Simulated assay, not measured.
Amino acid sequence: MKPTLLVLAAGMGSRYGGLKQIDPIGPSNETIIDYSIHDAIAAGFGKIVFVIREGFEKEFKELFNAKLAGKIEVDYVNQEIAKVPEGASFTSDREKPWGTGHAILMAKECINEPFAVINADDYYGVEAFVSMADFLTHSNSEQEYAMVGYKLANTISENGYVSRGVCVTNEIEHLETVIERIHIERLPDGIAYKENDKWIPLAEDTTVSMNFWGFKPQLFNHLEDQFRRFLVEAGQELKSEFFIPSVVAKIIDCDNTSVKVLKSDAQWFGVTYREDKEKATKAILELVEKGVYPSKLWES
Rank of each mutant, 00 (worst) to 15 (best):
F56A: 09
E57K: 15
P114I: 15
E57D: 13
A133G: 05
D197A: 10
V288T: 00
I251R: 04
Y161R: 09
D255T: 06
D197L: 15
G214W: 08
I251G: 00
T100K: 11
S209F: 05
V248T: 02
Q21F: 15
M12T: 02
A128D: 01
H222C: 10
R94Q: 05
S139I: 14
S300K: 15
E176P: 02
E204H: 09
G26Y: 07
Y123W: 02
N159Q: 06
V208I: 14
W199I: 10
A249F: 01
V261L: 12
H222F: 10
G235P: 02
F45D: 03
G149A: 15
Q218I: 07
G149Y: 03
L175Y: 00
A266P: 01
V168G: 04
A40D: 03
E241G: 06
I33S: 07
K194C: 11
K58V: 13
L8D: 02
I252P: 03
G99F: 07
A66T: 01
G125F: 12
P114R: 15
E127G: 08
R229Q: 10
I284T: 03
Q21T: 05
V271C: 15
E289Q: 15
V84L: 13
N221T: 11
I191Y: 04
L219G: 03
Y76G: 09
H183R: 08
G55K: 13
V49Y: 03
R15H: 12
T91F: 07
R274K: 15
F242M: 03
E241C: 14
I33N: 04
K151L: 11
M12C: 08
A69F: 04
F227V: 04
L238F: 00
V247N: 02
R94W: 01
E62C: 09
P85M: 10
